[in-house]
Amino acid sequence: MSSPQISLTTAEPADASSDAPGRGRLDITLVLSTGFLGLVVLLALFGPLLVGDPEEQNLLQRLAPPGSAGHLLGTDQLGRDVLARLVVGSRVSVLVGITAALLSGVIGSVIGIVAGYTGGWTDRVLMRLTDVQLAFPTLLLALAVIGFVGPGLWNVILVLGITGWVSYARVLRSEVISLRTREFVEAARVMGVPGHRIMVRHMLPNVTGPLVTILTLQVGTVILAEAALSFLGLGVPSSIATWGSMLSDGQLYMGTAWWLAVLPGSALLLTVLSINVAGDAVRDRWDPRTYTS
């Protein structure tokens, strides 16, 4: 009588793990990446209250290495605290990354879904438009526009947002073309569901996987693009600390003060990496067919 009970209790943990294969591994990366992202967002929101003035210069303490008294992560060539600048700089990266990626996501999704679902002339015109946009190096276009309208935080967001839609449009268009002939879309057409409703109710929910994937990749790309623009002195005004401008200033001192470039670079790398990992996990769980309840 007791043997089935024993086998039941021993079988239980094995069952639980086989129900969700790879779940433990997924959870660790997910926890690490979302934890890091949470930290970055928290620092962007409240960090500036905790650290000193990022602009305070002290020429007596130039290029102090990390671990110096009063400067946990050292100082830069003007004696400014690197930790304070990193924390304040995260604001620009997070803000630009998320807003610009969302903006281009909205533009690109609309163009891609409409082109893919409507087909015909609409599709041809929209796709030539994406070809033109794609033929233009994004950063060059951003440079030209910034040169014209002048640098500034919101100009950077706007430019990066408007230029980043191509990858969304391309991928979502091909997804929608394959969805268009699926039976549930035909069923909706037989039911007389109007085109715009089919796009919103049937297309959009079924392309969230690739959409989230591109969105997370795009957040990373945009953060890097903002860094590049700041690096070239065309991004956010130099009076605001950003990871990009820190990287740009720091690379001059690569041989003597490695931390000036390596620290903002690592922050950038870890943030972009975490966004991509978290995006993958979100995409996997978004699908109602893959989660177990």
Partner: peptide
């Protein structure tokens, strides 16, 4: 006029 398709699974939006 309405229709019932061959494969009932394919004829429903998996997200609904």
């Amino acid at each position: 006029v309405q229709m019932v398709f061959q494969d009932p699974y394919a004829s429903m939006n998996p997200r609904m």
